[in-house]
Design a protein around this nucleic acid. Sequence first.
DNA 1: TTATAATATGACGGGGTGGTCACACGCAGT
DNA 2: ACTGCGTGTGACCACCCCGTCATATTATAA
Lengths: 195, 195
Amino acid sequence: MPKSTFFNLSEEKKKRIFDAAVQEFSTRRFSEASISQIVKNAGIPKGSFYQYFADKEDIYLYMVEKVSQDIHEIIGAFNPDASFFENIMQRAEGTIKVGKMRPEYTKIGALTVIDNSEFILQLLRASNKKYIEIIERDKQRGLIKMEIDSEVVIKLIYIFVFNEYLYSGFDETRYLKKVESAVQIIKEGIAIHQD
Amino acid sequence: MPKSTFFNLSEEKKKRIFDAAVQEFSTRRFSEASISQIVKNAGIPKGSFYQYFADKEDIYLYMVEKVSQDIHEIIGAFNPDASFFENIMQRAEGTIKVGKMRPEYTKIGALTVIDNSEFILQLLRASNKKYIEIIERDKQRGLIKMEIDSEVVIKLIYIFVFNEYLYSGFDETRYLKKVESAVQIIKEGIAIHQD
DNA sequence: TTATAATATGACGGGGTGGTCACACGCAGT
DNA sequence: ACTGCGTGTGACCACCCCGTCATATTATAA
């Protein structure tokens, strides 16, 4: 958590720092991102940074939290009763939507998922937990085969959704098509068919 | 390609340099790997490195080529008539086998797949081409649904196989189980069932 | 107004990296 | 034995990074 000195700052300055963090973390992976760059982009002295934040992890977590809030606002609340498939498609569409409104945010996601520092791995594990629960519930509901490994499912999709974003670049239609294909394949692979 | 001076070196020295490269590239991503480290590990002077190689890409490509040869020897020639599924399972088992005999090699693969420098992206595209052809052929054979996007299939698996290796770490049984689950899901998702 | 506490600042030390270059070495041919 | 050329060598330059710290500045309280 940022130090109290940071929260005492003017909204304008806080925003400048947040924007600088977004700028840096949407360009380079967490492990490659540089505090010096953030400081430069934000137009604050090096010393001040350490007055506000403990280290890179600190500002990263702060940024991620704010970004998550923004994203939730864009995507809208998700329906807890919806099936896993509906959830995933919503998430995929959400990624597109966010990609349109805040391309930097999707880039942050893409770069996060291909970082393998211990810090980031923990973050991802936590963020996947929610989806794993939905899959488990859908198994009980008879929508998904019992023998399916939920962790594998979510990881397959998760990695693909972001990784593909890096490949597709700006080509949104292509991206959407690829993600839909992937989700379709996995859906076909794990669903219980009721013909 | 390394310069002629490199190939004139004694086998022992060439091996020392190769080993140093493997050591470095199995620890850090291509974009993070350091020539200084390779030089230190190999016990050769900085100047000599540039006498042998043009830059990091140069030694990387040289290393990848040698590693590929080694891997092919371990896995054995692949049967061109085998179905895509058989190929993929062979590849998965191959990854395990290589992981046992040359854990560094599998780490290189894992780190490669999560690098996103343009240089590495090109390398991956080239390496996936072969599998895409097999999928296309199996579509004609009536084994795989025509509407499936081959690129998506191979990317799903490719990314997962290596990414999971990073997560599972040394736990081979876990890794094997996860990969099998993933392949099973995708197989179920793209195959034409002939009941 | 003055004293005290909080915050701002940027130069600096210590560390790492890539690539070069002047010089040392040793071997081949005369 | 001497010359010349390919090769070996590591100090060096320019660049980047992190985190600190002594000092300057501002805000607050007395």
